[in-house]
Nucleic acid binder design. Structure first.
Lengths: 217, 217
DNA sequence: CCTACCGATCGGTAGG
DNA sequence: CCTACCGATCGGTAGG
């Protein structure tokens, strides 16, 4: 019953293995230090064979970039649309934050490569990825704008600054998050609470299910 | 009256020019794509001459890292200690945020190199920079802990998470900030307000000198 | 600080 | 998908 996969499927599998390996090496070593020979070795083939699947090193990088953005974007859209229409916008923002963070660690090599080495990619590769990046940013712009229009974000908040503030906080987690400590769900809850409520002691602590603390004066 | 600088000073000047050039290229191109030949060219000398001033490419990178951290650290310490003792801790945090952001753009190539390509540096170089990085992180840890002990940050806030949250937001500015738009002072004020007060519409807007808005219900 | 050079390695290709 | 190879370029060094 177990058969050899059809040639097309087999090839697609190898292609995917090359991308996975490349993403992992790009993330750790950067663009130039990642050599096609190293990718080939870890993917179990010879260097020249990569050109059977890709036209150039830049094309591999470009696909890693695209896949990284797409995986995050899709996960975020799915999470947000899963929040009931009667729920406040804060819940949708929280779902988006959680999905964004989750995607970092399910597809960590792709997303980290995006964050870490986008700036050092050849310009042609950057330009190709810009469209997808822009679409993802626009999604967040709209999400935050709706929350503001609904009155859940103060009208004096500059949404562009807020979005970049939040993106920074989220994207930085690729530099320090390790599984085993704080969970991603808890981290997403915490970040959401920081953004909406702040950490000031003169305010009520963020609503969190399992622990309520006395408030100061 | 204008004399040729003493040989020692001249050499120090060249050394500095090499570091400045290297930092700029490291930031833009990454570690491996930045070649000693390119550094030499833009610093106005031949590739071999760099070895009169540095022992290796790695040593240049290590010095760029160290300088980047030191410049930010010193600026932050200076800014914080300039806040009057009667002032609330929030003012010290705000001063630290502003100094951290300012340093990014006064010494942008050094600090951006630190943020962008630390992960792709050879391990020996990373290890050397760890001590300074740790010292800077500890400084922030202490600062936030004092604010919490003074009751200005809620007792239930995890300071490690808060620090990483804030570092992410601050460090991400190297990816998007361009002079001419929002000022760094305003950005630091805004980030401080976000962290302490949040953006929720059910709360008072962050205290800002020139504009007070009506508060919602 | 320069000239001239070395060994190593790279991205990519031809031909199978 | 492999073998064998090319031209280019790299970090680093010797000798001045």
């Amino acid at each position: 019953m177990i058969e050899t996969p059809a040639p097309a499927a087999r090839s697609e599998e190898t292609r995917q293995k090359i991308l996975d390996t490349a993403a992992r090496l790009f993330r750790r070593l950067g663009y130039r230090s990642t050599t096609l020979r190293a990718i080939a070795r870890e993917a179990g083939m010879e260097a020249g064979s990569i050109y059977y699947h890709f036209r150039s090193k830049d094309e591999i990088l470009a696909e890693v970039f695209d896949l990284g953005i797409t995986l995050v974007f899709d996960a975020v859209k799915r999470a947000v649309s899963g929040v009931g229409p009667e729920k406040p916008w804060r819940d949708r923002v929280r779902a988006a934050i959680k999905a964004h963070l989750d995607a970092f660690f399910v597809h960590g090599d792709y997303t980290s490569t995006n964050i870490r080495i986008f700036g050092q990619a050849p310009q042609a590769v950057q330009e190709r990825a810009m469209a997808l990046r822009g679409a993802y940013e626009n999604y967040w712009k709209t999400l935050l704008a709706q929350a503001q229009r609904a009155g859940e974000i103060r009208a004096d908040v500059d949404l562009k600054i807020l979005r970049l503030f939040l993106f920074g906080a989220m994207n930085w987690t690729v530099e320090w998050f390790k599984p085993g400590g704080v969970s991603l769900t808890r981290l997403a809850d915490t970040y959401t609470a920081y953004v909406f409520d702040g950490v000031d002691a003169g305010r009520a602590p963020a609503a969190q299910p399992s622990r309520t603390r006395a408030r100061r004066a």
